[in-house]
């Protein structure tokens, strides 16, 4: 088999498993929501609701009918790109998700950029100074980065940077139409909060990957060629160490898109996490289903892309499992 053919067939297999994962996820999420107690119609109509009005609303929302039929209707719509209409907002779920992704997506990217920008260099420095005081300091810092609960860190940051120093806004999102700069500025603190543990993880992964690479054959060869230690590190070890780091970065992106639920609440950002949190409490089931499915889609797509990238780099992975 040619190389391209092997990759294509590998990609085909992975794609099939991606589709199956999505399908299974859609069933799981639908079933979970069916058992959740609470009635979206009752939520909307409140304490003194008229029982007949409630019935009418239920019928209008399409909450009547057997579950299998409702599942097929929903998934059929999703396949055509129609995620249904939100019960409470009465607006198309797809447009709600798109609006929120415009906040959560850039937030995740910004956080990831910060994590990569801080984490990788720190990891490299720690590896280069392995065993030294700087290494110990960086490793201690990463331990603390991993241990701080993000919502607490968020509260502290707001207190220090917004209230005492006044360097950043305490929260809110002016919208992209207010200009790119104000929008980015409002995402800065939340991105910092989200980036902290990720940067710590990246630094640790980078450090151990670099140290691992230092013991490898190609490094010995490189040093034998007469390259200095730091040159050898830069030219050979760094590139090899990037592979595990990239895997982690791929995982982190999908985690960050969904991981901001609590942080979005602290900074009152209209993101995807807050949409789904609110939808769960209001029993806006169709929105919950849609958002979770999109999040799962992001996760499996990113994993898929990382796997393909691996296959391109590393021929051993192309063999059937």
């Amino acid at each position: 088999m040619t190389r391209a053919g092997a990759i294509a067939s590998y990609a085909g297999r992975r794609f099939l498993s991606l589709a199956l994962t999505l399908l299974a996820a859609s069933v799981v999420i639908f079933v979970l929501l069916q058992i959740a107690p609470g009635d979206p119609a009752a939520y909307m109509m409140g304490l003194n609701a008229d029982p007949r009005a409630l019935e009418a609303l239920r019928a209008e929302l399409g909450l009547a009918g057997p579950p299998v039929e409702r599942y097929l209707n929903w998934i059929g719509g999703v396949l055509r790109g129609d995620f249904g209409v939100s019960y409470t907002y009465r607006a198309p779920v797809s447009s709600l998700i798109a609006e929120r992704l415009a906040v959560s997506g850039p937030l995740a990217l910004l956080a990831l950029a910060l994590a990569v920008g801080v984490g990788l260099p720190l990891g490299a420095v720690a590896a280069a100074r392995r065993g030294g005081p700087l290494d110990a300091l960086i490793m201690a810092a990463t331990q603390i980065g991993l241990a701080v609960p993000n919502f607490w860190f968020a509260i502290l940051l707001v207190f220090v940077f917004s209230i005492v120093l006044g360097w950043a806004s305490a929260g809110g999102f002016p919208g992209w139409d207010a200009g790119v700069l104000p929008a980015l500025r409002s995402l800065l603190l939340p991105a910092l909060v989200l980036a902290l543990p990720q940067a710590a993880i990246l630094a640790r992964v980078m450090r151990s990957a670099l140290i691992d690479a230092q013991g490898r054959q190609y490094m010995l060869t490189a040093r034998a060629k007469g390259l200095s230690e730091s040159e050898a590190l830069r030219r050979h070890a760094f590139r090899n160490a990037l592979i595990p780091a990239l895997t982690i970065i791929g995982l982190q992106f999908s985690f960050l898109v969904a991981g901001g639920v609590i942080i979005e609440n602290v900074f009152y950002l209209p993101g995807l996490g807050r949409l789904v949190f609110q939808a769960i409490t209001q029993r806006d089931l169709i929105v919950v289903q849609g958002v979770v499915l999109v999040l799962v889609l992001i996760v499996v797509t990113v994993n898929f892309l990382v796997d393909i990238a691996y296959a391109v780099v590393d021929p051993r992975l192309r063999r059937p499992a």
Partner: peptide, 23 residues
């Protein structure tokens, strides 16, 4: 007093950034 600082600091931030289309 702290919060007022926040308000002032924000205003100052606007001051610094207003040529860049502060909100």
């Amino acid at each position: 007093a702290n919060w007022d600082l926040l308000g002032r600091a924000l205003a100052l931030l606007c001051l610094a950034l207003s040529p860049l289309a502060c909100g």
